[in-house]
Nucleic acid binder design. Sequence first.
DNA 1: GTCCAGGGCCTAC
DNA 2: GTAGGCCATGGA
Length: 218
Amino acid sequence: MSELLSIYQKLFDRYGPRNWWPAESAFEMAIGAILTQNTNWNNVEKAIANLRSADALTCRKICTIERLELEALIRPAGFFRQKAERLQLFSGHLRDRYQGCLDKMLRQPLEPLREELLELKGIGPETADSMLLYAGERLSFVVDAYTGRLFSRLGLLRGDEKYEQIRSFFMTRLPAETGLYNEYHALIVAQCKEHCRKRPLCRGCPLEKDCIYRQQNP
DNA sequence: GTCCAGGGCCTAC
DNA sequence: GTAGGCCATGGA
């Protein structure tokens, strides 16, 4: 078994299926992907609950709601002014180019679609890949800060790779299965939330024996 | 009080 | 092309 699959298996054995992305619709996932930028998911849940109560989890409503009202609804998610703008830019694009139909957008050819998302202000690579993988079930590995941190510690990355390099690292080594991509990213998050934050401690970590950081710092 | 979270943009060198 | 500042809330 490849090294990446072996690590995957250890994480899956420890944490089980993560059932990502937690949302009731693809559009809600896309909105959540923007709201969770550099923000604890707990806070995002509050914002999404507010949007749901206001019946504002649709493209049409996000497009037409007053900016200040949208800001107030998503306030718990932090960075609420930027995020309100980003939600409306994304929804406006969806309305203008795909008649507001997210499924239609997500069925487009992968790489051009990814580039199209990246051209939108406020959608960077992680947000784009989250939308593609989780809302669209498209084959695009999601990289985040945890990913680089964990695989550097495991000695599989140097630590100075750019986003696209890390994404390619996984995509050229893993079987082309969206279910695997989905679970792997979610498991990395679960792992890092429990063990690999900024503190240099791997005790009890399911990857303990593989973790070169621990070998270097017993 | 301090640190951090499932980033991304902008500006200055 | 890249390091540093900025955006903001809420929980640990």
